[in-house]
Amino acid sequence: MSRLIIGMILGGLGLAASSAVADNPYLEPLKPKTFTAEAVVLPVREIGTMTLREKRTLAVEIQVQLEDFLPRNMEPTLLINGVPVEGGTRVVRVEDRVTTLGFMVEQPQLLTEGAVLSVRMEDVPGTQAKVPGELRQVNIKGLSTDLIKERDLPSLAEWLQQRK
């Protein structure tokens, strides 16, 4: 059997799985409302003698507000221009029916001007939804000049020019 045929079978099965949306809240599309972006400092991270992050680095946290977010164990995925972001997520805050999730972006090349954002659960294509708006680099909140100097970090503009 060719891998192409197997791929078609898998695709078909995926469609079958998503047909049960009405019965299962885990299969419902996410409901993003808006987003903000701000530069953050990722600290050194150690567990005992094991170093997980050797030095402080700059990153951008995309904070997406979602309505009626179902708390799950699998982390949701942020996609920038369709590319999944590999990084941690967290619950930033909850206000009434709106949950703000933070997605850490450590790859500046993903944050292109006019980028389109979407969110989804990894295994369920039907959960994907576009986040309203487009990414504008000028709207990414930077760190204070003092903090940049104190922590010996690049400015946000410099960081955005980097290619990892």
């Binding site: 953050v40 400092v41 990722l42 600290p43 991270r45 567990i47 946290e61 708390p71 941690g88 997520t89 967290r90 619950v91 930033v92 909850v94 933070g102 850490m104």
Partner: peptide, 13 residues
């Protein structure tokens, strides 16, 4: 540590 998170410590840690 449920429905939470931090930039400086993963919620798994």
């Amino acid at each position: 540590v449920t429905c939470a998170g931090s930039i400086s410590m993963s919620d798994y840690e």
